[in-house]
C-alpha cells in the first residue's frame, strides 16, 4: 500500500454519509523507533495541501486561522481504527483489525 492510496480518499461516518477527504496522515514513532500511522486529518471539500495549522488544538494567528478555515473548513483528526473509507465498513482497504470501526469482528 502507498500513502497516495489513502490521501484524497473520501471518509464516511457510521451512517454512510461522506464527511470529507483525507488530507494528511499523522504518524508517530513507537518504542522501537518505527514510524506508525495513527490517525488521519479529514477535511470537507476539495483536496488541497495543508499548512499544518489546520490540526485541531494547534494555535494559529486569527488571520491565518480564518483564511485556512475558509479554504479547508473544519479539519478533524480521526484515529485510523475509526476510519471508514466506504459507506460500509467492509469497503475499507485497511487490514482486518482496522476494518471494524464498530468493534464487530464478524461483519
Amino acid at each position: 500500500m502507498r500513502a497516495s492510496d489513502l490521501l484524497g480518499r473520501d471518509v464516511f461516518d457510521t451512517a454512510g454519509n461522506a464527511v470529507g477527504r483525507i488530507v494528511d496522515l499523522i504518524a508517530r514513532h513507537d518504542a522501537d523507533g518505527q514510524l506508525m500511522v495513527s490517525a488521519a486529518l479529514v477535511a470537507p471539500g476539495r483536496r488541497t495541501r495543508l499548512f499544518t495549522y489546520e490540526r485541531p488544538a494547534l494555535a494559529a494567528p486569527w488571520l491565518v486561522h480564518t483564511a485556512i478555515r475558509r479554504l479547508h473548513g473544519d479539519v478533524n483528526e480521526i484515529q485510523l481504527s475509526d476510519l471508514r473509507l466506504g459507506p460500509e465498513a467492509r469497503e475499507l482497504p485497511l487490514p482486518a483489525s482496522l476494518r471494524q470501526p464498530d468493534g464487530d469482528e464478524n461483519s
Binding site: 488530507v23 504518524a27 514513532h29 500511522v37 495513527s38 495541501r49 495543508l50
Partner: peptide, 8 residues
C-alpha cells in the same frame, strides 16, 4: 518531528 505529517 513528532508527530510526522506524511503529506506535509
Amino acid at each position: 518531528p513528532e508527530p510526522v505529517l506524511l503529506d506535509f
